[in-house]
């Protein structure tokens, strides 16, 4: 028997791999996380021998409707509506649900931006289906089932999750887990204009929205060089030393979860499974032990350097170059040497 709260469905009526896509802040393009997801959906759809559908909703998004096609979509379902001028989680979630339930995709993927993470479970619940959070890979198993893969707590293990009796199979994906596909204007596809009855927001009203003025700083997921500190740094002062090193290398500062918990570095600079996945050319882990959940975030780093007092710290197994030593001695020595090199460069 199935739960009587779940509407009856026929599994064989569901086909296609769908992605929810949103405009970026400027409104002039599609946000990066959506594009990345279209690329990932393309690969899964090829395995399933089906199409990639994109649900593009918002106000004024009609003009962007061909963009997803250039990144791998076959069909773009557009809801361009003035009533979507303001974002409300339940309203947008409802519209995405209604649009998808009209076309019954087998798979429905949502970019796990902060808004996406807020909407995705609501959409899944509206279908009374399951949803896999923060998946990092997708596959089709011997039985032809879609498998969504996510790292569980261990950090060194991956959980393969299937959704057997409900559709769509839903998942959310964090930004930068998949690469942004090449834009290819020669790709062709179909744009389908849809009209959906956009509900009025109930019990919620936006009073104010203002941009956060950020220091002109490269976000860690885009940085080429990252100097990351862990609990062994011991203080906010210690992080200033890391900042000097990062500046000399043209990089940014990040941290482990324990450094974030200690308040030495901002939460949006946490590297790891529950933070961000980064892909710099050079990652320098300072006084970080190398827990599996942390290392998970640096799999795509080209070179990893570790500085740690403990010769047995697991981080050394995950690094290319390791220095055993107290960071309070090693980092100043590095800074001195780099300043010297910089000085020479200026003279020469």
């Amino acid at each position: 028997m199935v739960c009587s709260e779940w509407p009856e469905i026929r599994l064989d009526e569901y086909e296609g791999v769908w992605v929810a896509a949103f405009a970026d802040e400027s409104g002039q393009g599609i946000e990066e996380a959506s594009l990345q997801l279209i690329g990932a959906a393309r690969q899964l759809a090829d395995k399933l021998e089906t199409y990639v559908g994109v649900a593009l909703i918002g106000r004024g998004v009609r003009d962007l409707a061909r963009e997803p096609i250039f990144y791998g979509a076959d069909r773009v379902f557009v809801v361009d509506d003035d009533r979507l001028a303001t974002y409300y989680p339940a309203v947008w979630g409802r519209v995405l649900h209604d649009l998808a339930s009209r076309h019954r995709p087998e798979v429905f993927l949502i970019p796990a931006t902060l808004r996406g993470r807020e909407m995705a479970p609501y959409i899944a619940n509206s279908f009374r289906t399951g949803i896999t959070a923060d998946l990092t890979a997708m596959d089709v198993n011997e039985r032809g089932e879609v498998v969504l893969i996510r790292p569980p707590f261990g950090g060194f293990m991956l959980a393969h999750i299937v959704t057997r009796n409900r559709r769509p199979v839903m998942g959310s994906v964090r930004p930068n887990v998949f690469p942004t596909p090449e834009r290819d204007e020669s790709r062709t596809g179909e744009v389908v204009e849809e009209s959906i009855d956009v509900p009025e927001p109930r019990g919620i009203r936006l009073l104010e929205r203002e941009p956060i003025l950020k220091k002109e700083e490269i976000p860690i997921e885009k940085a080429d060089v990252i100097v990351a500190g862990g609990r062994g740094i011991g203080s906010k002062e210690g992080f200033k030393l890391l900042r000097r090193l990062a500046d000399l290398l043209g990089g940014v500062v990040a941290g482990s979860r324990k450094a974030v918990d200690a308040g030495w570095i901002e939460p949006d600079k946490q590297v790891g499974q529950t933070g961000k996945a980064v892909k710099p050319n050079l990652y320098i882990a300072v006084a970080i032990s190398g827990a599996a959940q942390h290392v998970f975030g640096i799999r795509e780093a080209k070179r990893v350097v570790a500085i740690n007092v403990d010769p047995d710290a697991p981080i050394f197994e995950h690094s290319d170059y390791g220095i055993v030593g107290d960071y309070r001695e090693v980092v100043p020595a590095l800074i001195e040497l780099l300043e010297e090199i910089k000085g020479r460069r200026k003279e020469g």
């Binding site: 060194f156 293990m157 991956l158 393969h160 999750i161 057997r164 220095i323």
Partner: peptide, 23 residues
């Protein structure tokens, strides 16, 4: 009452690194 089910668990392959150490 849970639509999702765990079908398998696998180890994440380790990324190969040079592992050169200086003391």
């Amino acid at each position: 009452g849970s639509p999702t089910a765990l079908s398998k668990i696998e180890m994440i392959p380790k990324v190969p690194r040079k592992n050169e150490i200086f003391r």
